[in-house]
């Protein structure tokens, strides 16, 4: 009898200690990968254990960054820049992740009727240079010449991108063409990192990489993640809406993310493949879907489509929804979303 009572007491004590050891929520942030901020939120017994997991995931993200980089080369790696540098010269043997990303990007080109085109590197490069100059010396900020943009646009035919899946090689047959995977690479990489987390049994996490948020599972307490949509009017800490999700990705393309000013007017980084100018229809477009890669590609494509066309595309896709903030500041949501509270949205799938 005494022994039994003693046992009960010990169990009680263990239960008490156990309560104190519930996994806590931690956050770790990094700067560098994909030239932006990455925020990893997850759960662990203590800060150190969480940091070990987060570092592991961030390292993986950096690997993808190197593979998908269009500006820098890295020792021993053939990346997207290597492919661009060899346009019209030679086919390049690349990592399977690059083949997958490029094939996915071509699929998205077709799905969106060319409103998102990774073969637009030549045009985007011009805007990039003018934007960098404008940011570095605001007084000398200029717009690219129309003729310059138009002649670059003659070298954006995605059919000149030749992907040989069997031999893992990529070749650009037009020497003037180049790839810019800015609309798909981050989303694809974050998705792959989330899959990697699952393979390492790291569950209940949210990874945000510069506007790309991908969640694995729910929060540890079983609640959905509340992903904020940054207000295009405030600073980066202000949210205009939030979306409750689990196992889903929320990706936002916004005019406020990268821009420069010419004569007091802002010119952002999302360039319409038809007009070759920054699209002025929206302040931001957010896509909620089960795939961060798809959300990323669609957020750019939808940004370049009038609202009716944009809506039609979203409604034709399963498990895919959108939040548009129009140029006048009004907010439109797709049919799979509803208001949970005034500022909080929930998905119906």
């Amino acid at each position: 009898m005494k022994k039994a009572i003693f046992a009960v007491m010990i169990i009680c004590l263990i239960a008490f200690v156990g309560c104190g050891k519930t996994d806590l929520q931690y956050q770790k942030q990094y700067i560098d990968a994909f030239d932006t901020v990455t925020i990893i939120i997850g759960y662990a017994a203590n800060k150190e254990a969480f940091a070990t997991n987060a570092d592991l995931l961030y390292e993986k993200l950096c690997e993808y960054h190197e593979l998908f980089d269009i500006y820098n080369t890295y020792d021993g790696i053939n990346n997207i820049k290597t492919i661009n540098d060899n346009a019209g010269i030679a086919s390049v043997t690349v990592d399977n992740a690059i083949i997958e990303l490029l094939e996915f990007s071509v699929d998205m080109y077709e799905l969106t009727g060319g409103k998102m085109n990774i073969a637009m590197g030549s045009v985007l490069k011009i805007w990039h240079e003018y934007r960098q100059n404008g940011i570095n010396s605001p007084d000398d900020a200029e717009l690219p010449y129309e003729t310059e943009l138009k002649s670059a646009a003659e070298h954006t035919n995605i059919e000149n991108l030749i992907i040989d899946k069997e031999n893992n090689t990529v070749y650009i047959s037009d020497p003037m063409m180049s790839l810019d995977v800015g609309a798909t690479a981050k989303g694809y990489a974050v998705e792959k990192v989330c899959e990697y987390a699952e393979s390492k049994c790291i569950g209940n996490i949210s990874i945000s990489c510069g506007g790309n948020v991908c969640t694995v599972g729910k929060k540890a307490d079983g609640a959905d993640w509340n992903v904020g949509i940054v207000s295009p009017f405030g600073n980066n800490n202000e949210y205009i809406r939030s979306v409750k999700v689990h196992d889903a990705a929320v990706v936002t393309s916004g005019t406020y993310q990268r821009y420069y000013e010419v004569d007091g007017k802002k010119y952002h980084h999302i360039i319409d493949p038809e007009t070759l100018m920054p699209s002025e229809l929206y302040l931001s477009v957010s896509i909620i879907s089960k795939s961060s890669a798809e959300s990323d590609a669609l957020s750019t494509a939808l940004f370049n489509m009038p609202i009716d066309e944009s809506k039609r595309l979203i409604e034709s896709l399963e498990y895919t929804d959108a939040v548009w903030i129009l140029a006048d500041g009004s907010i439109v949501i797709s049919s799979g979303l509803s208001n949970n509270t005034e500022r909080e949205l929930k998905i119906q799938w």
């Binding site: 956050q27 942030q29 700067i31 560098d32 030239d35 901020v37 600073n235 980066n236 800490n237």
Partner: peptide, 22 residues
């Protein structure tokens, strides 16, 4: 331009200088 922060997990980021304040 981000202004001031005081709530847990709020952040100020300076990408060019690789500085984060959280």
């Amino acid at each position: 331009n981000t202004g001031s922060i005081s709530n847990e997990n709020e952040m100020i980021v300076c990408l060019p200088n690789k500085v984060i304040v959280v």
